[in-house]
Design a binder for these strands. Structure first.
Lengths: 193, 193
DNA sequence: GTCTATAGTGCGATAGAC
DNA sequence: GTCTATCGCACTATAGAC
């Protein structure tokens, strides 16, 4: 028999989310999380940089999905269309089966300012990656940054709606609807009478 | 003579920014900041919730400026135009004399992820306030959220440009240029060929 | 795997302003 | 007397150093 069970990181994540949900983020100590899966505090910090980080992984894969979708867009597509392609590619990460889990995780995050901070930093990182990729395609600043940030805004708004009570549409569908709404809003403000 | 000098919070802020700039945020202890202005650690935490917060105040006044500008927009203005009015009102907070100081402060923040997190939380708070105000004007979601978030994106991009080396335009001018660029980008993506 | 610095909190005491 | 700013001390947990 193995000296330690495999999947330490995954077990720590599961235990952390449970405890954060049950008694709140601040009321949960790292020692408790580690103990629950038979590990030590020290081991927790070997896997995750800090107590918050345990809720934010898989970000790399989401980022890669964005980049893949972006790369698949036609070379001459306008910036916002390129971003839309990236967003579409990300929809695979949010199948209907994941909706409940996403809602739980989001509830924990939304309830704690320090977790909100970390979430915003991660999303800002995604926006930075996207705008960087746009610049690599030849889109100049500030257009690249504006397009990337707008894309992330669509992503966030769509995600919030997707996990809302009673929402039935797929993440992809919600995202398309929000994207259309963004276009309408921008057109409404710029269209001459 | 008074037992304590007035303006404790202001003195703590000044000392904190100096030390953060000189030796870095993490390398500076709260005890050092407090000692430098003749106060104790405990008093620092009476004025600021945590070590980061000392760099983020006056946020309330900026928020109020946004709201005032927003309230001054005509009732039938489209959402993004209302947001533009709020942005314009905020320009008073960034006169040319403040450009250098803003750049220094931003350098400290940008150099530290934990400060970036706090900054993003504050900006998200502003966006939340704006979208709330739009909803109060009768703008439905998700348009209200999209307009508010887009406005903050413009604000952030403009601010970054305003403090960039060699930039001479006023904050108001930069912001207008970015706003126009956002309109062009949105139009470019939605306009049929 | 242990040891330690530091952030941050709770409660109480003190000293001045009014 | 009340109110408020400050300080002192004990304490926990995070996070990093050794």
């Amino acid at each position: 028999m193995a000296r330690w069970q495999p999947g330490a990181a995954e077990r720590l994540q599961a235990a952390a989310l449970e405890l954060y949900l049950a008694r709140g983020f601040e009321q949960t100590t790292v020692a408790e999380i580690a103990q629950r899966v038979g590990l030590t505090e020290r081991t927790f910090f070997r896997h995750f940089a800090d107590k918050r980080e345990v809720l934010f992984d898989g970000q790399d894969r989401l980022e890669q999905a964005f980049l893949d979708g972006l790369a698949a867009a036609p070379p001459d597509a306008p910036p916002l269309a390129v971003v839309a392609a990236a967003l579409t590619a990300s929809a695979d990460f949010f199948p209907d089966e994941r909706r409940r889990w996403s809602a739980h995780r989001q509830a924990v995050i939304s309830a704690n300012p320090s977790l909100r901070e970390r979430e915003l930093l991660k999303l800002a990182g995604l926006a930075g990656t996207l705008s960087e990729a746009l610049r690599a395609r030849g889109v100049p600043d500030p257009t690249a940054t504006l397009a990337a940030e707008s894309g992330l805004t669509v992503f966030r708004v769509a995600f919030t709606q997707w996990i809302a009570e009673g929402e039935r549409r797929s993440f992809a569908d919600v995202q398309l609807a929000v994207l259309a709404e963004l276009g309408a809003m921008a057109a409404g403000a710029t269209a001459p009478a």
